[in-house]
Design a binder for these strands. Sequence first.
DNA 1: CCAATAGTGTCTATAAGACAGTATTTC
DNA 2: GAAATACTGTCTTATAGACACTATTGG
Lengths: 239, 239
Amino acid sequence: MTPSSTPPSIHGQSAIRVEIVVMTVVNSDLKVMLEKRIDQPFSGTWALPGDFVSISADKNQGEDLFTAAQRVLKSATGMTGTNRFLEQIYTFGRAGRDPRMRVISVAWCALVPPELFDMQTDATVQWFSASEETPWIRMAFDHAEILEIGIQHLRNRVDHSTLAFELVPPTFTVGELRTVYDAIKSKRYDPRNFRRRFQRMLTSGLVEEASGKRHLGKSRPAKVWRLSEQFNEKVSKGS
Amino acid sequence: MTPSSTPPSIHGQSAIRVEIVVMTVVNSDLKVMLEKRIDQPFSGTWALPGDFVSISADKNQGEDLFTAAQRVLKSATGMTGTNRFLEQIYTFGRAGRDPRMRVISVAWCALVPPELFDMQTDATVQWFSASEETPWIRMAFDHAEILEIGIQHLRNRVDHSTLAFELVPPTFTVGELRTVYDAIKSKRYDPRNFRRRFQRMLTSGLVEEASGKRHLGKSRPAKVWRLSEQFNEKVSKGS
DNA sequence: CCAATAGTGTCTATAAGACAGTATTTC
DNA sequence: GAAATACTGTCTTATAGACACTATTGG
């Protein structure tokens, strides 16, 4: 091997995209945001939010991948401020995956608060239930595969990170937190066993008691908690 | 968002590379293969094996990322046949990471049998101990970061895959397998506790007894085992 | 006999799953 | 009182770590 010694120009260049699997949890249902394509190819099918990465020939070379992912996420959700959970998951670069030209897509996984679910729904932007509807949607390019890996990434990470707290209000009850776990893992955690798990979050200092109580339905009011200040920081990493 | 509707040409294009973190275990020591750069930039420093991905403007669009990774791996190791462990780990695309031009590097993690360690060592190709020497090597570009993430990937995966069996002979003793785990995790597993873990591999059908015994040093001969046929297949996935 | 590894077994701690029962609210 | 959720607790199982002991080889 001759590392990096060959002039790159003879190898050709490729367009670079970022595609974001934007997810949230509403009513214990994991939702994913998709956009309807209007142009060819795959006109009329659903696609992940995404865009080409700006690349320039001058000295600054264009925008970072992470910056591009943030930009697309803000544009798709209308959110201001930086998102706390935006992680790179995989890069898709098979030849022919875009019929027009060679395209490399760096896929990302993002979580947004459930409030967005109510706001953002029209003819071109729609939220789909990840567990049930997703397999039946006709999707553009290889986005069905990307979506699958994005959901898988979320399921693998939820047990070893604080990402679940991105999907509950700043103060929350044990039941609300469990509901988020239920939705992501697509199973019903036993409320009694989950509470034991929550107890360990408490003794380890991950969560702390908040003031007041909350009662949602027709049942006993529950204590409210919050993520401890020291953990209440951003978790993402760029590239 | 306008999904994929904008003509890509105005966004510019980038060179695409694959970089491989090639690792093996020799004498309970995790080793990584590096190549010495001769050309500028970073002349004289060490770099991961890698190359530009061939991209063409015609209909076939060039080679797949996975194919490129396989090609680089074969070229760097001189191995024939397809490698069983070659997994994509992360994509590095920060602007300015290559001073010459914009380059996106898709990083991969590969395991090769220990025999290669003896063969491949000269002025330009060298194996370094991952646990001790690595922090002290002057590396090209952001390859130190890529290497770090590659080692981390291996450590995370070894407990939930059959990857350790890539680094022992076709038939092996419990001690030989434990030695591989020791090297990858950079800790000493208790031989008695590890044997219990091995027992579970046995009862679950992951490994099975082979004929004969083996004794390496000056001690009691040990039973030999093999990975069960049903698991003895390739594990990698392309993109 | 000594050194070294193979192989068997015990005790403890942690975490997850199944499940019993009481407490407090709305209707 | 009925329904629903909050909260406390028990029993069992799986896994990992610390550690004691015997077995078989080479020197």
